[in-house]
Nucleic acid binder design. Structure first.
Lengths: 159, 159
DNA sequence: CAATATTGTTAGCCAAGGCTAAACTGTTTG
DNA sequence: CAAACAGTTTAGCCTTGGCTAACAATATTG
């Protein structure tokens, strides 16, 4: 301990069971989140490209830029990355397409996104809010939780 | 449209109602997520510092580095930022303390985190998974959804 | 109390993901 | 079919959040 401690009187944890997790577990939590962040944007791009292809028949950089509220230059740079990762194919000045791997990722992302979105709606969240929350949450929901969400939604719809 | 389109046969949206959202709404979703990302790490640090102060009486850079699974140099740099943001006070080689603003942020983050964690457990997610998911999800859950989660958890505990 | 161990800081590197401005390509249209 | 417009790319900048290595301060202990 050090000298004067202005925070010494912070309230004790409300529930004893909510003590700090063991260091390794705690570290694991943060590492998982950091990891998710790296793939998140990639998945968002791929998912959006898949959606544009499905709904519009083509995916142009300008559309992506508009929908992501990001400059075209940023999209262009990102597409180069997606290319290197072999998730999309692109000829200069032409529409984008997804590779096998890209399509797979798009489908997975889309499915995950839908489960979360439908779950939130089933829970009673307003549509506009559910959409925003789903977009942020989808990359941080484990398969275990996802399965539970899906079951919950189905239950809800039966009654 | 362009020439050959290898993705032209992608399945149509399973539910017609799930068409692409209008551009402005869509853009809003992504912007909200990008925005959350900027504050996320800050909140994680402040929350952790608050927890360490509450549970241990002090918050040292080394503890933070261990718990975050990050180098001490990274923590040191981050603390400088937190200082500039007037969320923590620190004298070199001494424990950290939270400013008023920092305490407020820590409390808010902690409360939010707890609601999500308890909700996931109430939903039936295993503890270890719930902890990991909560860490990632907490920054992307709106107040509206948070309130609904809290109500759900309370309902669950009554029965 | 000196030597060692732990802890914290600084410097300097890197990649990612934004941006603007400028150049280039492709499409549309007078 | 040339000019104008829309879309795309490139260059070059910035900030964040990582890292390692080297150095500095504090704490511990023989």
């Amino acid at each position: 301990m050090t000298d004067s401690n202005p925070n010494a009187s912070l309230p004790a944890p409300s529930i004893p069971g909510d003590a700090l997790p063991p260091v390794e577990q705690h570290a694991q939590q943060y590492a998982t989140v950091r990891n998710a962040h790296e793939t998140e944007l990639i998945e968002d791009y791929v998912e959006l490209i898949g959606d544009l292809l499905a709904h519009r028949g083509e995916a142009r950089a300008a559309d992506i830029a508009n929908r992501m509220a990001v400059s075209q230059a940023t999209v262009s740079k990102m597409i180069r990355r997606l290319n290197e990762l072999e998730l999309v194919t692109s000829k200069p000045y032409r529409s984008l397409f997804l590779t096998e791997a890209g399509q797979k990722m798009a489908e997975t992302s889309r499915a995950r996104h839908d489960i979360v979105l439908h779950f939130l709606r089933a829970l009673g969240v307003r549509d506009a809010t559910a959409r925003i929350d789903a977009e942020g949450m989808e990359h941080h929901v484990s398969d275990e939780t996802l399965a539970i969400m899906q079951r919950f939604t189905e239950q809800q719809q039966k009654s």
